[in-house]
Each structure stands twice: as C-alpha cells, then as structure tokens.
C-alpha cells in the first residue's frame, strides 16, 4: 500500500478485490496479438489476457512457457481500453514485478506457464497490482487468498476444449463451501487443518457461505453453453482461452459467449447464441492427456 500527501491509498485490498467485482458477469478472453485484443474488446470482453501462445499451442508445442515479451503486452495495452491481464509463472516474483512495471491491470500467477518455484507461490501482498490465481479445491483457493490473491479462477484443464475438469473444480469448490457452512463452530478448527488454510479465513467462509473474493472459472470453455453452465454452477464470470481464437469464427463466437454468460439462466438466449458459430475448437479429451501433462496439477 502507498499513501500520498492527499490521503489517497493505492494497492489496498478493497482496490485489488474491487476490480474483480467490476468484472463479474463478464468474459475474459486470451489474446496473442493486438488485432485479437481489438476483436475481443469489440465483442464485449470485460478484459483480455495478453499472452504469446494460447494454452492449446503451449500444450501442442511443449517446452518451457514463460511470461510474454513486454513488447507484446505493450502493443495489446495500447490497443484496448478494457483491463489487460498477463501471466507470470507460479512463484516467479520477478516476472510479476515486470508485469506490474508494465502497468498490466491484473497478474495471473498461472499453472498454464511452467512453474518457476515448486515450493513457494508469489507473496502477492508485496504488490500494488492485484493477482488472480488458479485453484482446484477450496483449500488451494484459501491458500492463494492468504498469499494475497484478490481473485480466484477455478483451473479446469487449459487448452483442451474439454470442460469436464472446469466442471469438476467449480463443483468441488462450491460443494466444499457448502459443507463448511454446515459445520458447527467447534468443528472449524479441524476443518482449517484439513483444508490447510488459516482458521480465520475458514471461519469467514463458513459464516458467509462464499469466498471473500470473486471466483471465475477457466480451462476448457469452448461454447456459449459451456460458459452458461459454469455460471449456473456458481462462477462469477468466465475465462475463455483457446476456445475463441482456435475456433472457425472467433468474432461470432466471442460475442456469443458474452451473451450466453450474461443470460446464463435463460435457455432461449443461450440457444440463440449457439446458432451458426462454425467449428468449435477441435479439442482433446482430458482423459487422453497423460497425467504429467495436466496443467491443473501444477500449484498446491
């Protein structure tokens, strides 16, 4: 936090979490060029994720995946007026420092890139820029929030176009929250131990029945119906990675997913949005991905 002489403070929890609140009900789209960022903004994205390769290509090409070139991030930032997010490797606090320096609006400490530290995640309290982190279950989400994450994204399995892992992760997190709310107060100490998360945070979630930060879902969303399903399962919004620009008609698909997300509970709108979108990304079934290549297992 930084307080200046006019009594204004930047980088507070309210400011970091607040931006995520403003993104709710929206779609955050992966883009790899300024031109794609323009398409995303015009289609109604609430933010873009600037990266060099979408997860499907990272998966196909292999190798170590790192933070994007600052020139690429600058080009995308210059192109659009909506928030720009960018990914740092898990634990790579210097990549995060660089992204903050570049003025990105959110840093995604992401399992889609190759981890830089297999023990520690980034201490996100040290930054003015807010962070979003992936989680596959409630304990993982609460550990990330303890480290300073201002937004959570259920992980799914990025770059597959197979929504089953996204479903599993958001169902797991919401079910664990419901289970926590049903526990008596004296059972929360053991719950905190089981979740490997601080007691105060566990108690807060048990009392409110919700995470203290916004939760989007990610990883395998490829169609308007996928996005609407994630929203009905309790997501505050969706990230769409490879699903848009690896499809036959990105312009139409991007706009359709935005509509289906806003009207996720209205099958008439989702049906209309699903028409005539051309080919969805081909995708691969998560069950065909060998366990060592599953990105969602990165992070702990």
């Amino acid at each position: 936090m930084n307080t200046d002489t006019t009594n204004t403070t930047t980088g507070t929890g309210a400011v970091k979490r607040g931006l995520a609140e403003m993104l709710k009900g929206g779609v955050i789209m992966d883009v790899v060029t300024a031109e794609q960022a323009r398409i995303a903004e015009d289609a109604g994205a609430v933010a873009v994720m600037a990266l060099e390769r979408v997860p499907a290509d990272i998966r196909a090409q292999g190798g170590v995946a790192r933070m994007s070139d600052p020139d690429l991030i600058d080009a995308i930032t210059a192109e659009v007026s909506i928030p720009v997010m960018a990914k740092a490797r898990i634990g790579h606090f210097v990549e995060a420092q660089v992204l903050q320096q570049l003025g990105v609006d959110y840093v995604d400490e992401s399992e889609v890139l190759s981890p830089a530290d297999y023990v520690h995640h980034i201490d996100k309290h040290r930054f003015t820029v807010p962070f979003v982190c992936g989680a596959t279950n409630l304990g993982e989400a609460l550990r990330r929030i303890t480290e300073g994450a201002a937004m959570i994204r259920s992980k799914g399995e990025a770059g597959t176009g197979d929504v089953s892992e996204a479903t599993r992760h958001i169902r797991t997190i919401t079910a664990e929250i419901r289970a926590l709310s049903s526990r008596s107060e004296d059972e929360l100490y053991v719950a905190a131990k089981e979740l490997q998360a601080p007691y105060a945070l566990v108690k807060e979630v048990a009392e409110t029945g919700a995470l203290p930060v916004v939760m989007f879902t990610a990883g395998g969303v490829a169609t308007p119906a996928d996005a609407a399903m994630m929203m009905q399962l309790g997501a505050d919004g969706v990230f769409v990675g490879s699903g848009i620009f690896h499809s036959g008609d990105p312009v139409a698909r991007a706009a359709a997913i935005v509509k289906a997300t806003a009207f996720h509970d209205d099958p008439a709108v989702v049906a209309e949005a699903s028409r005539g979108l051309g080919e969805a990304m081909v995708g691969i079934n998560v069950s065909d991905v060998p366990a060592p290549h599953r990105l969602s297992e990165r992070g702990w």
């Binding site: 006019t6 009594n7 204004t8 403070t9 930047t10 980088g11 507070t12 309210a14 400011v15 607040g18 931006l19 007026s81 928030p83 903050q100 003025g103 990105v104 609006d105 959110y106 003015t128 820029v129 807010p130």
Partner: peptide, 15 residues
C-alpha cells in the same frame, strides 16, 4: 472521461 486516473496500479481509496 473513461479511465481518467490511469490503470489499476493507480486505483485508490480516499476519504
């Protein structure tokens, strides 16, 4: 004017 105070790093709280 949209985004009149800059990007998220410049977002702030005040009394």
């Amino acid at each position: 004017r949209r985004n009149a105070f800059g990007r998220q790093n410049e977002s702030f709280e005040t009394e």
